[in-house]
Design a protein around this nucleic acid. Structure first.
Lengths: 122, 122
DNA sequence: TCAATTGGTTTCTTAAAAGTAACTAGGTTT
DNA sequence: AAACCTAGTTACTTTTAAGAAACCAATTGA
């Protein structure tokens, strides 16, 4: 096990968290991971409840962090394609382990507290 | 690579995230991971900027999720000890990988954008 | 000429997370 | 008797995240 030091190193975990948290980032990332390229409007259709504002801002943060690439085609009407960067793919194993931990934890919670927490989240 | 399906499975990732997010949960968890048992006041001293209210609420959430155990000693003045549960230790590898991803990402960001983002977070 | 198209931006409002400060119980120490 | 200790709770305020809705630019097709 890697060394654990709580105090100063917590910032590093927050850095990782900041990439992933936000109500929409995980689902955006999963869509981009399984799709190679997606236009803005395709993401909108894939995640119908998201607003343009949220989609834009989350994509911009991911772009700033070099997780997502934004390709603008100079044409009208505009066309913009989003895709995972090479670097961004390095995040995949983490997201996948988080999701599988979550899946198991759901079962564990149900065992502990019963099925009272069934509200869907997305 | 495990199968990725964006739509329905995003909830599971959120479940994992909900355990970890919150401004204080990661640092609380790291302290408990490296300390076996800690009293409420010891956690307060270890994380001086946290308020009682936040410390209490975050610990209660972790307790609800069976990550943290709360042991109350019936004495005055009160004594309450917090520790990771056996189940909670299953979260350690995830937290450790998140932190190391974060560490590497910090270096990556610096390479990309320079050292302009130096504000400490905790 | 006029509506439709795409990928946004802007302003305003609402909801959720976090912070502040005062208060509590009840036994111990001064 | 008064102050102190721990582990909280409560009520209120501030900050941050998210949502709603209107607006925009340039070209195409009807």
């Amino acid at each position: 096990m890697a060394n654990l030091t709580a105090g100063e190193n917590c910032g590093e975990l927050q850095v990782a968290l900041d990439i992933i948290v936000g109500k929409w980032k995980p689902i955006i990332l999963f869509h981009l991971m399984e799709n190679e390229k997606l236009r803005f409007s395709e993401l909108q259709r894939a995640i119908p409840e998201i607003t343009k504002k949220m989609l834009t801002s989350q994509l911009r943060e991911l772009e700033y962090n070099d997780i997502v690439h934004r390709e603008v085609y100079q044409q009208v009407p505009p066309k913009v394609e989003y895709s995972m960067t090479e670097y961004g793919h390095g995040l995949t194993p983490l997201l996948v382990s988080m999701r599988s931990w979550g899946t198991e934890h759901l079962a564990h919670l149900e065992e502990l507290h019963g099925k009272d927490n069934e509200e869907p989240r997305c």
